[in-house]
Amino acid sequence: MKETIVFVHGMCHGAWCWEEHFIPFFEKLGYTCVAFNLPGHEVQGSTRRISYSLGDYVEALHRVVANLEAPPIIIGHSMGGMILQKFLKTGSCRKAILLASVPPSGVLFASLRALFRYPGLIPYLLQFNLLGGFKKYPQLMFNDPDLCVRYAPLMCAESFLAYLGLMLPSHHRTTVPLLVVGGSADGLITVQEFADTAKHYKAQLEIIEGGSHDLMLDKDFEKTAEVIKRWILNSDH
């Protein structure tokens, strides 16, 4: 039976972020790929305010996994990585990949770094307008001006309530085989935080040289996809 990979997107994104590169890459390898929109993320570019908790997003992942015939491999990006970590408190999967993920310590330090580097984010934060901040400074997500222009318009409003949930640390452990992948040029999460995440979970760490926060949308996305492919295959042995 084909293995299934479930993709969990991050803040202000949607299932679309997996559809251009990662899903074709892994489908060619024979995997069944499932990408879904978290609640309120169904419409690309939507500015409609939403108010879901991080727990609502975790429940959405539980529902997707419950509908599958067998435990999947799950890849969680950014906020989706924290959703995956919280899912593993009570749920299970065959393998888990944290891609440019919020660390177990939460997103506070990443937020403070971003505000210090780009003080223009502060008015957006005071307005609870996360989308506005990311659209003004898309370089937080992408390391290429062309990609900023291309993908920023697809991003949608994010729940400030869910963002506040990301401030809280998640200190549990898991027995699920886990890989941590980060980019050396990530505009939000540091290489040290990726290393700390891997240490926390006793997981393998892979740093993609020059990789942005949105590793799955980088022009050289295949570097990241190949690292994940090799780990999935090798961790069976």
Rank of each mutant, 00 (worst) to 15 (best):
K2W: 02
E3R: 09
E3G: 06
E3S: 10
T4Q: 11
T4W: 03
I5L: 11
V6Y: 11
E19C: 07
E20N: 10
H21L: 04
I23Q: 14
E27I: 03
E27M: 15
G30H: 09
G30F: 05
Y31P: 05
Y31M: 09
T32Q: 15
P39A: 06
H41T: 01
H41S: 15
H41P: 05
V43Y: 12
S46R: 04
R48M: 12
I50D: 07
S51D: 15
S53E: 07
L54F: 11
V58L: 03
A60R: 15
H62D: 11
H62G: 04
V65W: 04
V65N: 08
L68C: 09
A70M: 05
P72D: 01
G76F: 00
G76R: 08
S78T: 10
G81S: 03
G81L: 04
I83H: 00
L84K: 00
L84H: 00
G91L: 06
L99Q: 09
V102T: 15
P104G: 02
G106K: 06
V107N: 14
L108V: 13
L112S: 10
L112H: 11
L121C: 10
I122M: 08
I122C: 00
Y124C: 09
L126Y: 06
N129W: 11
L131G: 07
G133E: 08
K135A: 02
K136A: 14
Q139R: 13
F142E: 01
F142T: 07
F142H: 10
N143P: 00
N143S: 14
D144C: 11
V149D: 14
R150C: 01
L154G: 04
M155E: 14
M155P: 13
A157D: 12
A157H: 15
E158Q: 13
S159M: 08
S159Q: 11
F160K: 04
L161R: 13
G165A: 01
L166I: 08
M167S: 10
H171Q: 11
H171C: 12
H172A: 10
H172C: 03
R173F: 05
R173L: 10
T175F: 01
L179Y: 03
V180P: 00
A185D: 15
A185C: 12
D186F: 04
G187W: 06
L188W: 10
L188M: 15
V191K: 10
T197L: 03
A198T: 05
A198Q: 03
K199F: 02
H200R: 02
K202H: 14
I207S: 02
I208K: 03
S212T: 08
H213S: 02
L215C: 08
L217M: 13
E222P: 02
V227N: 00
R230A: 04
I232Y: 00
L233H: 15
D236G: 12
H237S: 14
